[in-house]
């Protein structure tokens, strides 16, 4: 049966279907409907004093054996960054939703943005390898929330699910019963009955090894390989080839919805897994096109990533300040 759902509600519903047992969060526009939805579900729910508490409580509950999630927007996501690195270090499954609004700082709280792409990848200090998903419809908000939980259980790492003010506040009809999905069960033993030590320090067998460079090198390599291995099971993208076009458009999230009429004239590649970057697929698709244009709601954060991977000139069409205009995009494409 079809139901009218909002993007944020679909994220909440997806989390419940994935087995969410614990949610902690702090109110922030435009993500708050996720917590409103989850406050009415039969789970352990806490409205915390701030986002630092929200993410750390979710880490604690996850260690305690409950599938856990927190959700926020840019300012709160910035506050969570130190803890994201910690969750990678101690290898705890967790889902963190960031509904993007226009920054920096308090910025434009109700307006959509894709300004946290770099933050989602590089926001915490030190090296780490996050898995980041970004859906583009209400149905996908549901689906990829479930996949985010699955990837977190498989990789024992915090998964970032990106949305934006537009997508999260979008209402669409969705037939939930018709969507097929698998659920990954928890295999990490809950905290309390073993003799493990979870520490942010570099350590071996629970014992700090804070001056052991060789151990660090082995450890970081292992982390990288772990994420690469898990990522192979989550190669999410959409590719619409237009054989008459020599130009490839790359867009994701709400921007990819706006440009979808352009498939009549261009090829379109839409990464759903933004990180790790879908390198092989991108290279394969890029080879077929003379020109590549990234269209995104920031100053070129993902364009820079694509340029680095493909080692060729990439064009950028930016949509900033919360506004999206197909007409303007078309005009700029004509100039390219």
């Amino acid at each position: 049966m079809k139901k009218i759902l909002q993007g944020n509600e679909a994220i909440g519903l997806g989390a419940i279907k994935a087995g969410l047992k614990f949610y902690s969060g702090y109110p922030i526009t435009p993500s708050s409907e996720i917590m409103h939805y989850l406050a009415n579900q039969d789970i352990e729910f806490v409205q915390t004093e701030d986002e630092l508490a929200a993410v750390n409580m979710a880490i604690g509950a996850s260690l305690g054996g409950m599938k856990s999630m927190t959700s926020t927007s840019g300012p709160g996501f910035s506050l969570m960054q130190e803890s994201i690195g910690f969750a990678h270090k101690i290898e705890v499954p967790l889902v963190i939703v960031n509904v993007q609004r226009v920054g920096p700082s308090t910025g434009m709280p109700t307006m959509p943005s894709q300004g946290d792409i770099s933050q989602a990848r590089y926001g915490s200090h030190g090296d780490y390898f996050p898995i980041v998903f970004y859906p583009n419809s209400v149905e996908e908000c549901f689906k990829y929330t479930i996949e985010a939980f699955n990837a977190s259980e498989e990789s024992l790492s915090p998964i970032i699910l990106l949305s934006d003010a537009f997508l999260s506040h979008l209402y669409e009809t969705v037939d939930i019963e018709s969507i097929n999905f698998k659920i990954k069960q928890r295999h990490l033993k809950p905290l309390g009955d073993e003799k493990r030590h979870f520490t942010g320090l570099l350590s071996k067998g629970g014992i700090p090894q804070t001056r052991n460079s060789d151990l660090y090198k082995k450890w970081i390599q292992k982390m990288k390989e772990k994420i690469e291995k898990t990522s192979k099971n989550y190669e999410f993208f959409e590719y619409i080839e237009n054989k008459d076009s020599d130009t490839l458009l790359i867009a994701f999230g709400i921007t990819s919805r706006i440009i979808s009429p352009l498939k009549e004239n261009y090829s379109i590649f839409r990464p759903i897994r933004l990180f790790p970057i879908l390198e092989e697929k991108l290279k394969e698709v890029a080879e077929k096109h003379k020109k590549i244009v990234v269209i995104e709601m920031n100053e070129g954060q993902y364009k820079n990533e694509i340029e680095r991977v493909l080692e060729r000139k990439i064009n950028l069409i930016k949509q900033t300040g919360g506004s999206l205009s197909l007409r303007q995009i078309k005009r700029e494409l004509d100039d390219i």
Binding site: F22, S24, M57, I59, G60, A61, G64, S83, G192, H197
Partner: peptide, 19 residues
């Protein structure tokens, strides 16, 4: 658990709520 600077109380609260 050896948590982050300042954040061990909320982490412990999460653990307690689960256990």
């Amino acid at each position: 658990v050896h948590g982050l600077h300042g954040r061990i109380i909320p982490l412990a609260e999460g653990v307690k709520r689960a256990r």
